[in-house]
Computed example of a mutant assay.
Amino acid sequence: MELDGRVVVVTGGTRGVGAGIARSFLAAGARVVVCARRPPDEPVAAGDRTACFLPLDLRDPAAVAEFFAHVADRYGRLDCLVNNAGGTPYRLLGEGEAERHARVVALNLTAPMTASLAARPFLREARGSIVMIGSVSGTRPSPGTAAYGAAKAGLENLARSMAVEWAPEVRVNTLVPGMVRTELSHLHYGDESGIAAVGATVPLGRLAEPSDVGGAAVFLASDRAAYVSGASLLLHGGGERPAFLDAATANQT
């Protein structure tokens, strides 16, 4: 899965899952550009290789177009776009106006589409690929993050349509992670015992690490996935144990 000389853009690649993805591409030999509205607290690096940071507001289509033209001009090519930027606060549907929920959809669905359209001419020239970072929230009910779940479901469908429309020059796939341990996990799950308890609900017994997501993204961008397009790869450690199994009494002693 060597990606020597290839150029990769990771949106939202300055922390958490995005930084893990960027580090995995660096370790695979790629030249990596990470973008976000704010610079990282420390450089995103793997060994002696460091990602280039460029500021970008993905909600500004003109800035996005200028960004990708600059990357292609600076590096001479663009081989992969990883649409990772996104996120949402916890907010029940009835606790916010439609406009607030629409902003979540814009960040998690419209922004990746904007970036993909801007990157397409350069990816087509390199016969490159796009990796969308989805979420299991888009495959099941997502109470408290309904707009986010809807956007991620839409992102997965968008990727399938892109894969058909832009073939054979550009491959498009989606990674669908479950729970991932990042520097912000304590805000969601509590202290180490809380994180361990949540991890114990996963069949593989732990939360994913950012490097797990990064390794899968590197595979989808590599020549080993040359015939993989329009696919969704679940990365959730086996999923969730069905609640009815815990409620059932027939086989309990």
Rank of each mutant, 00 (worst) to 15 (best):
V172E: 05
A163F: 04
S211G: 15
A69Y: 02
L123Y: 01
G149K: 05
S24F: 12
S193W: 07
T88N: 10
R124E: 13
G128S: 12
I130D: 02
R100S: 14
Y148P: 06
G87T: 05
L204G: 06
M179I: 13
A115M: 04
A115W: 00
M162T: 01
Y227T: 10
R224I: 01
G239S: 07
N173M: 00
A19R: 12
E125R: 15
L123W: 03
A119E: 10
Y75I: 09
P242W: 06
A19N: 02
G16Y: 12
L93M: 13
G205T: 03
I133Y: 06
S24P: 07
L235N: 08
A248S: 13
E169P: 08
T88Q: 08
G86Y: 11
G178I: 01
R15M: 13
G144F: 02
L184V: 12
G47C: 09
V176C: 14
T145Y: 02
R124Y: 04
P40T: 05
F122G: 11
D48W: 04
G12V: 04
R74Y: 10
F219C: 07
A167P: 09
L26E: 06
T114E: 08
A217F: 08
E192D: 11
R38D: 10
L184P: 01
A150Q: 07
C52V: 15
G239L: 04
G16K: 12
R171E: 09
A30F: 10
A119Y: 05
V7Y: 05
V105T: 14
E95M: 05
L175I: 11
R160T: 04
P143L: 07
N84G: 02
S229Y: 07
L81Y: 01
G199F: 10
V164A: 13
N251V: 12
T11G: 11
T14N: 03
A225D: 01
C35F: 00
V176Y: 06
L26F: 10
E156L: 13
C35W: 02
R181P: 02
G96R: 06
I195K: 05
L234C: 07
A196N: 03
T201I: 01
D41H: 15
S185V: 09
N251R: 11
R15S: 15
A69E: 15
V10A: 04
C52P: 00
P61R: 06
P143A: 09
F25V: 08
E97V: 11
P177D: 01
T139D: 14
L93K: 02
E209A: 14
L235T: 05
R241G: 07
F122D: 05
L123F: 07
T253Q: 14
E42K: 14
P141L: 03
G238D: 03
P210G: 12
V218Y: 08
V213G: 08
P55E: 14
R91M: 10
